[in-house]
Design a protein around this nucleic acid. Sequence first.
DNA 1: TTGATACTGCACCGATTTAGTACTATATAG
DNA 2: CTATATAGTACTAAATCGGTGCAGTATCAA
Lengths: 159, 159
Amino acid sequence: MLALTKKTDYALVALAYLARRGRSVTSSREIAAGSGVPCAMLTNILKCLTHAGLVTSERGSRGGYALAVEPGDITLHCLMTAIEGPSHVVRCMIPGQSDAGSACLLEKSCPVREPAKNVYNRLRKFLEGISLAELGVRVSQPVVTRVDSDQSPASLVGI
Amino acid sequence: MLALTKKTDYALVALAYLARRGRSVTSSREIAAGSGVPCAMLTNILKCLTHAGLVTSERGSRGGYALAVEPGDITLHCLMTAIEGPSHVVRCMIPGQSDAGSACLLEKSCPVREPAKNVYNRLRKFLEGISLAELGVRVSQPVVTRVDSDQSPASLVGI
DNA sequence: TTGATACTGCACCGATTTAGTACTATATAG
DNA sequence: CTATATAGTACTAAATCGGTGCAGTATCAA
């Protein structure tokens, strides 16, 4: 499969909503309502995005999330790594597992391994070349460092 | 995940072995022994490859498989489709399921869907641009239409 | 004609991964 | 102090993947 997992897909939609909210801090609840992503799922996703530094979080009442970087500066590869962990093309190349005991029978004599590594690098570059901006994630309002007012929470995605 | 499944990985290794055997008809048993792919698994994989027209099969004693096309003419996308079925980037774009009742809540208002389709097309083109030849699958002997002798079955992959 | 070989098609099960939920702890505003 | 909202983690259920097995059919050779 080369598909995005449902989680990554959700993350994309959530980020798209966040972008539309400018950079005002938005609670997970509102993001869920506005983007259509199930709330329980979303909170976990936002935790991943926070860890990866793609969004910033603020605790407490009036807390929430906001985009940490411009959509044009987040790559698809970056998002996938944030949600799904380190990527790989063939299993024997999973980071930190290459010389594990469970390695494939072919080991060093495998004729595919080296070329596959090359393909993986090209694929990674490809994914690094796709920004979220290209995926429809656009900041709709003039970017403000911090907004406290509720503004129009109007669900632009319209559930 | 953007990884190949283990099956696709196996298919690659099996095709690499087949290519090294020129175009002589080779039994699944020998391919298994020579490539290191578990035999039971391999037979299923070879069925897929046959359906997809990547290899030809011959039944009966003395039967077996042979490459149907040049490694340079088989693309990674083609192989993945043969083993894993039709690909997609986001679930709502799975072929023939786009308007199913189980569609995502966002439906037509989803801001990600259209751009994702675009990315999918680019990704597909990328995968279509990678031939098995680039993945280390090389025909090692002058291509012969049919060889009956056993030749040197020497495991070139060396288990 | 019979037997051995080898692919075909399908069905099955266990293991892993993904999807989704829940609960406790901690931080902040009022 | 209380309400709100994130942080962290653990857990269950569903889907997919990995792997095996078997009955059926075709081919070759004795």
